[in-house]
Amino acid sequence: MYNDLNPILHSQLRLAIISLLVKNKAMEFTEIRAATNATAGNLSVQIKKLEAAEYITVLKSFKNNYPLTTLKLTQKGLLAFEEYVNELKKYLEP
């Protein structure tokens, strides 16, 4: 049986962000931007959506007097990603 894929994760950029955070414990905004090739504006919007869903935490601090945004995956985000991958697997293995 095919279930609907999680709409929060079923977006290329948001899925890429979560995938990167599963692989790396914490990542800076600039690192994610470089890895995804997204614009800063689009990335900020998608990060806010993931944060609102409590899939990630966003920590704002300073590094050498420059603002530093660090992203971390939450347990809720990890479980949502796991469910997404399991559902996707069903589509690939009918």
Binding site: V22, E82, V85, L88
Partner: peptide, 11 residues
């Protein structure tokens, strides 16, 4: 997907 699932389990 197998690799991704392994990563998920590790996390």
């Amino acid at each position: 997907l197998q690799i991704i699932q392994e990563m998920i389990q590790a996390e």
